[in-house]
């Protein structure tokens, strides 16, 4: 088990190194940060001086090695735009994005799983059909449209919820949280619903189809034949057997929620990593962009590891190769 985790960690390192390389090399071609920084009336000498100061005059491999070396020591370089350490920028912005992604994923699960179970159990009921139809909308509507429609309804129309920003925040250690103030929670609602919409629809449809498949299995029939209550059969025996795919998707979706909160954060001017990244792109802020991408790949790697470990917790067949074990057959 420990060997497995170690092996996975080494693999993860390689993945992140590759991502860093791709990101870094791509960003070398997106534009010239010096043009932005020096301003229009800088002389060519000033520009060259700045270029040398930033280390941009060095050949690409050297710059990349320097970047990776810095990352390994926890040094992510300085942002060209605000001339602050990238690490500090990330730490400032991270809580906003994590709170948004976690609340969106939690919302997606809390609503999506029960709806999926309901639709799987009562396939032909009118409500199930309606949920199915609405979920199709949820899955096909782009995030920015959802966001704008929500702003139009709840901020502009009804005036209940703020259309942008994070509201009041409270600092706990280095973590700036918006969860402890009324305005913070009100501000969180619209963006997290927007971000959750797609995931919710996806989780609901997945749980529904998995439930329908599991309910046909012999062990469900046998559980019924033993007179177990519907509750025990549906939630104890059936739902648990649907969890492996649901956890996979939820894990990936949580990663996506962190990574692709960019659109939602832009729509709601949410001061998170996504907004930081969008601003960095506009300014060709290479250290910020590269660090962001490395961080996102780190998230994905960690999430995948957690997902794999959860499989072990859920499915005893993966834990050992006992007699009659048929591997991961579902």
């Amino acid at each position: 088990m420990i060997a497995y985790v170690l092996r996975r960690l080494i693999q993860s390192m390689l993945v992140m190194l590759t991502v860093a390389f791709v990101a870094f090399s791509l960003f070398s071609f997106v534009g010239d940060p010096v043009a932005n920084m020096a301003g229009e009336d800088a002389s060519q000498r000033d520009r060259d001086q700045l270029r040398r100061d930033l280390g941009l005059a060095d050949p690409f491999p050297l710059r990349f090695v320097r970047f990776v070396g810095g990352v390994l020591q926890g040094e992510f370089g300085f942002s060209y735009r605000n001339l602050q350490p990238v690490a500090r920028l990330i730490v400032d912005r991270l809580p906003a994005t994590v709170e948004l992604a976690v609340s969106a994923t939690a919302l997606a699960l809390l609503v999506g799983v029960p709806m999926g179970v309901y639709c799987g159990l009562n396939r032909s009921s009118a409500l199930a059909q309606a949920i199915q139809a609405v979920s199709l909308v949820g899955i096909s509507l782009p995030t920015f449209v959802t966001g704008i429609l929500l702003i139009l309804t709840f901020s502009v129309g009804l005036g209940w919820l703020p259309p942008f920003g994070r509201g009041d925040t409270v600092r706990i250690g280095w973590w700036q949280t918006g969860l402890l103030s009324v305005s913070g929670i009100k501000s969180l609602l619209l963006p997290s619903v927007t971000l959750a919409m797609f995931q919710m629809a996806l989780v609901m449809r997945l749980v529904r189809s998995e439930m329908m498949e599991v309910l046909r299995k012999d062990f469900i029939k046998f559980a019924r034949a033993r007179g177990l209550t519907s509750r025990a059969v549906n939630f104890g025996h059936a739902l648990r057997n649907t969890l492996v795919p649901v956890i996979t998707i939820t894990g990936l979706q949580f990663g996506s929620a962190v990574a692709f909160a960019i659109v939602t954060e832009t729509v709601f001017q949410w001061p998170g990593l996504g907004l930081l990244f969008v601003q960095a792109v506009a300014y060709v802020d290479i250290p910020v962009m590269a660090t962001y991408l490395v961080l996102i790949s780190f998230f994905f790697v960690v999430i995948n590891l957690v997902v794999d470990l959860l499989y072990y917790a859920i499915d005893p067949r993966l834990r050992d190769g006992g007699p009659g074990g048929t591997g991961k057959g579902r």
Binding site: D218, F219, F222, R226, H237, N241, R317
Partner: peptide, 14 residues
């Protein structure tokens, strides 16, 4: 009580 045909699939694997 009931006993079904296939013991491999009659028990919940989890």
């Amino acid at each position: 009580g009931a006993i079904f045909q296939d013991p491999l699939t009659s028990l919940n694997p989890l």
